[in-house]
Design a protein around this nucleic acid. Structure first.
Lengths: 198, 198
DNA sequence: TGTAACCCGTACACTGGTGTACGACAAGGG
DNA sequence: CCCTTGTCGTACACCAGTGTACGGGTTACA
């Protein structure tokens, strides 16, 4: 390696193109998880080979997109106030999660075909842990039911949110009502059943 | 067309092979929805070309598999007693539906890539209608909540059952507890909320 | 203004899956 | 027992997507 500073570094338009490619990939993969490199390149307004100049393979690109999407999501979710009444905290978390789902669509489905299962699992674990600890606290405070496994309750939230996304783009649920409908349903599913009360 | 009866009809082993192919296709597509013709042929213990002797294309085969699976499902679901307390009827319906899901796995996902959306929609409508009418009756009898859309409640059952299947083969939910867990959750989500009572 | 960095288009090799053709061989049914 | 029906293997054409190579043209940046 030369003692002089990096000869020229990366050019400005190159960085701009990389960003355009990732953005286009998110947009494209969000609606069709098995879009081709040609599709993504076209959506980015860039030649197909140019994509390969920045990402060695399709897997590489999907990996980059996935981590970008996850990181952004983490930032948003980290800003949610999870203190106070667990039910109200849950609604706030649902609100933020819903924004993420709308944004990333089925990008994760694309990642499934590319990343190894362990990697996928690890990606899902981060946001799930947030839900888990909230559920845990809610159960401990006697607000959420304890007659079903903790992991199941966490899963139910995931199912309902994902399902709502399907209902919305099938036209059976208005986007405006989505968050309220999800919240109402999940809170009902989480509530302590009458028979469990002392 | 000759006046004589069909010269020879279909041979016995041919019919046997067709059945073997369809069975193998169900088994194979249930776990990997985008299995190739070669995979299916191998699973059926049959040459790849033999499959083409009976099904003109992959789409044809998937179509045949789908209708077989749906028909069998319809027969099972039709045997469920939907009278009496809507809550108990719902549990019976869940029990039967769960068996179907376990059996067909992700065959429908395979169908999604092949059949046109309208056809898919029509296929899902048949079992959904059964749920819908039960939900409708339950709401009319004041047992199920009416503060959420009917179509949403129907969707919730679908989400929970499908989600449970994911949880089971992720090892987070015991198959033995699946039906009870699903039923408890769905009944909680369907119950009339305290604030709605007069 | 020069030059390294970059983009673009075309072309090509490679892979994996689909669907067809053909000829040899086995098996069921009259 | 014979002939039709069906199966099997190999081989081939085809398509779509991935990844690489190269040469001419641009663009940023110093």
């Amino acid at each position: 390696m030369p003692s002089a500073a990096t000869p020229r570094a990366q050019r400005a338009d190159a960085r701009r193109n990389v960003a355009a490619i990732v953005d286009a990939a998110i947009r494209t993969l969000a609606t069709s998880p098995d879009a081709s490199m040609a599709d993504i390149a076209a959506a980015a307004g860039v030649g197909r080979v140019t994509v390969y100049a920045h990402f060695a393979s399709r897997a590489d690109l999907v990996r980059a997109v996935t981590t970008r999407v996850i990181d952004d999501g983490e930032v948003a979710l980290a800003g949610v106030d999870l203190t106070g009444d667990p039910r109200e905290a849950l609604v706030r978390l649902i609100e933020s999660s819903w924004q993420q789902i709308v944004r990333i669509g089925s990008v994760m489905a694309a990642a499934t075909d590319v990343l190894d299962p362990g990697e996928i699992r690890r990606l899902h674990d981060a946001p799930a842990e947030r839900v888990r600890s909230l559920v845990h606290r809610g159960r401990h405070e006697g607000v959420f039911r304890t007659d079903l496994p903790e992991s199941w309750l966490v899963g139910v939230l995931h199912m309902i949110i994902q399902g709502a996304a399907v209902e919305v783009d099938a036209g059976r649920l208005s986007p405006a009502h989505a968050v309220a409908t999800i919240s109402t349903t999940v809170l009902a599913a989480y509530a302590v059943p009458p028979t469990q009360r002392p």
